[in-house]
Design a protein around this nucleic acid. Sequence first.
DNA 1: AAACTGACCAACG
DNA 2: CCGTTGGCCAGTT
Length: 113
Amino acid sequence: MSLRRARDRRPPTDYAAFRNAVYAVVARIPPGRVATYGDIARLAGRPRGARLVGRLMADATAPGLPCHRVVAAGGALGGYGSGPAFKTAQLAAEGVIVRRGRLAEFRTRRWVG
DNA sequence: AAACTGACCAACG
DNA sequence: CCGTTGGCCAGTT
């Protein structure tokens, strides 16, 4: 059989299914809690798909999807279509404080399913 | 078809 | 605690 790099690329996942899985996971993040793009990717079955999750969030049109609860690794804020100030405000409304682009208490606020 | 582009991430210095 | 670097993966040029 042909050698494949140990790096072991892509389990053959189809994008549509992955997208649905991502939406489903994001919808389950409780208010006042957050998950990272990488967390979502992993929970949706694509451990190295963090960037794809970012794309999906950027494209997401689904109303009511709490994409503001999806943040970057290490407790950084991560991006947001309507700007970081808006994301910060939405998090603040749930009691999650963001200072200098960092989440306070990220460790304990993080939701891992 | 090759190069570029992200709402990313971990390792390094 | 910053900034850089290399890797990631699908869409867009």
